[in-house]
């Protein structure tokens, strides 16, 4: 070893067989010395080749099976997107393009479906029947609209300006045909006097002669018992 460079220690350093104190000293020196780093590289090239002279010893045949099983097990622990990223890095642009096309296709389908829905809605409203129910002098200006399809057994009653009832009472819709009154459902109104009732009847709503709403005990009655508030 010269005063300036630990050249005598470099062969052992390249092999990794220096004792700890000498190893640290050489490491510190190498951090700032290009001359010794270059010299070390020449010894490192020797070390890199020494493994070639290990006595020939073939492994058992089953070692390959163990290896392939192991890497397949490892594969299972890696999330699919990481495996895809590692294995097919060149396919990410293609995958992104496919996703974009799928997104655009889904958007197109959505637009078409919305158009179809609007078309159906317009067709339904065009054929719908609207029956107005007017308030009586006692309940004016209350009113309601009953919306129905000509042959449908269901409809929608939209109510406005009916006063809130005391607890224990509800409004009840009556479907009237040839003097016979059938319940169309009960409802309560909001603080603003509004309500929506889905009406279901045993026969097409358009077949009834008239409709009325009365005040009935909570849950409704078999027939009208209270004050009439809407009619039409």
């Amino acid at each position: 070893m010269t005063e300036l460079h630990p050249t005598d220690l470099l062969p052992a350093f390249s092999l990794g067989c220096l004792d700890e104190d000498e190893q640290k000293m050489v490491q510190r020196h190498l951090a700032d010395c290009d001359v010794c780093s270059a010299e070390l590289n020449r010894y490192q090239e020797v070390v890199d080749q020494l493994g070639l002279t290990a006595p020939y010893e073939p492994p058992r045949l089953e070692l390959k099976n163990r290896l392939m099983n192991r890497i397949m097990e490892n594969e299972g622990r890696i999330p699919w997107y990481e495996r895809f990223s590692m294995k097919k890095p060149g396919l990410w642009p293609a995958a992104a393009m496919i996703c974009l096309l799928l997104f655009l296709f889904a958007g197109l389908i959505n637009v078409k479906m919305m158009g179809r829905i609007r078309e159906l809605e317009n067709r339904d409203y065009a054929n719908a029947l609207y029956i107005s129910l007017r308030g009586t002098p006692a309940s004016s200006p209350a009113g309601a609209v009953l919306i129905m399809q000509p042959e449908a057994r269901y409809g929608l009653l939209l109510v406005h300006d009916l006063p809130e009832l005391e607890s224990g009472y509800q409004y009840q819709l009556w479907l009237i045909k040839e003097g016979v009154r059938t319940s169309g459902g009960v409802f309560s109104v909001s603080a603003r006097g509004e309500s929506r009732l889905k009406v279901v009847s045993p026969q097409p709503l358009s077949g009834y002669d008239a409709f009325g709403v009365t005040v009935e005990p909570f849950g409704g009655s078999d027939g009208p018992t209270g004050q009439k508030v809407l009619g039409g």
């Binding site: 070639l52 290990a54 006595p55 020939y56 073939p58 492994p59 163990r66 890497i71």
Partner: peptide, 28 residues
């Protein structure tokens, strides 16, 4: 490289089982 890798491991460790494990680790 199976022979080269296994030969280095076997020559270093001196037993077949340890050498196989090291060779497996290296290829993994």
């Amino acid at each position: 490289y199976k022979v080269l890798v296994y030969s280095i491991a076997f020559n270093a460790l001196g037993d077949r089982s340890s050498a196989e494990n090291v060779a497996l680790d290296a290829f993994t």
